[in-house]
Simulated scan of single mutants.
Amino acid sequence: MLGALLENDAAKPSPPSSSPDHPGREAGVNARGLFWEAKRGEAQVSLLGSVHVGFPELYPLRPEIEDAFREAPRLAVEADVTSGTAQMTAALRMFGGWYTDGRTYKDELPADVVQLIEQKKKENPLLQMTVQDTMKPWMVLYMIIGTNYRDIGFDPEYGIDVYFLKKAKEAGKTILELEGVDAQLSFFERFDRETVAFLLREELSKTPQEVKQSLNTIFDYWTKGDARALGAMIDRDNAPPEKKRYVEAMYDQRNRRMAERIDALSKEEKTPLFVIVGAAHLVGQNNVLDALKAKGFTVTQK
């Protein structure tokens, strides 16, 4: 969930064509979505870019996507966030997000970031309850991001991956993971203090209006199937060193590993494979689709 939400972080976008108060409500069956087909010999892989938060009006998706899912006996996702094991793993990982030696996030972060966090807590009663002093900085970041999205009406329960995970379990499909919950929740533990501080400054600087505008734009591009525009939102060329380290770890490294896993799964069985990953992993530089092309797949946007 942590990586999922952060994958929507981007440079300030242009205003979307959909209504600011009803982002992407023309989605669902009328939306093209970010959807590709990859083939190599007998291997057939459908790849759908997910936005990991959403709203009920998003579903069902257009028939071509729903049909491809229905015909595939196997579903591969970044992590099965709906499984009991995943939820237990997440809970255990969360315990690792707290200091037990007397330290607080205030001891570990620059004074200006601490001041921004305290101001945000004053403005948001929910954050006063959820952000505790003994949390590690990455855990504080997780809480702030989740609260920002929920405050503007986007719910992870309506994320595209969750929608298809529930359908897959109802249909008895095989569910496979490209990463797993533990790998995702341990992501920020590997960052140095400067990078986490940078990400906190970036997130805390956003107004609710800016968060809403960013997500509206993402849904607008997703609805139109505009992979190029969405990829352009990930600005690595003009980014400071901290953001470049984040982009390299969040996208480049993970994209390579995901492509290797998809490649391996395509060889295990001849049955169609339906893959759902965050849309940002399928666009921009060094994306999963390019890595699959390098492995001999022919990739077509549908």
Results as ranks from 00 to 15, higher is better:
Ala38Phe: 00
Glu37Pro: 04
Ala38Ile: 00
Pro13Phe: 02
Ser19Val: 04
Asn8Leu: 02
Ala27Ser: 15
His22Gly: 03
Pro20Leu: 13
Gly28Trp: 14
Gly24Asn: 13
Asn8Tyr: 00
Pro20Gly: 10
Glu7Asn: 01
Gly41Ser: 09
Gly28Lys: 13
Ala38Thr: 00
His22Ser: 10
Arg40Ile: 10
Lys39Gly: 06
Pro23Ser: 09
Ser18Pro: 01
Asp9Phe: 08
Asn30Thr: 09
Gly41Glu: 05
Glu37Tyr: 08
Glu26Tyr: 08
Ser19Cys: 08
Arg32Phe: 06
Val29Arg: 14
Ser19Thr: 02
Pro16Leu: 03
Gly28Leu: 11
Pro15Gln: 04
Glu26Thr: 12
Ala31Tyr: 10
Arg40Gln: 13
Asn30Arg: 10
Leu34Arg: 07
Arg25Met: 07
Gly28Asp: 12
Pro13Ile: 02
Gly41Leu: 10
Pro15Leu: 03
Gly24Asp: 04
His22Ala: 13
Gly41Cys: 08
Ser19Gly: 04
Pro15Trp: 02
Lys12Trp: 05
Glu7Ser: 04
Ala10Asn: 03
Pro13Tyr: 03
Asp21Gly: 13
Pro23Ile: 14
Glu26Arg: 06
Ser17Gly: 04
Glu37Val: 14
Pro23Arg: 12
Lys39Thr: 15
Leu34Met: 14
Glu37Trp: 06
Ser18Trp: 06
Gly33Arg: 14
Pro13Met: 03
Lys12Gly: 04
Arg25Gln: 08
Asn30Val: 01
Gly28Phe: 12
Ser18Gln: 02
Ala38Gln: 00
Ala27Tyr: 14
Ser18Tyr: 03
Asp21Met: 15
Ser18Leu: 03
Asn8Glu: 01
Pro23Ala: 11
Ser19Phe: 07
Arg25Phe: 12
Ala11Met: 02
Arg40Val: 08
Glu7Gly: 01
Pro13Trp: 04
Pro15Lys: 07
Ser18Asn: 09
Asp9His: 01
Gly33Leu: 15
Ser17Asn: 02
Lys39His: 09
Ser17His: 06
Val29Asp: 05
His22Glu: 11
Ala27Leu: 15
His22Pro: 00
Pro13Leu: 05
Ala31Ile: 12
Gly28Ser: 15
Glu7Met: 01
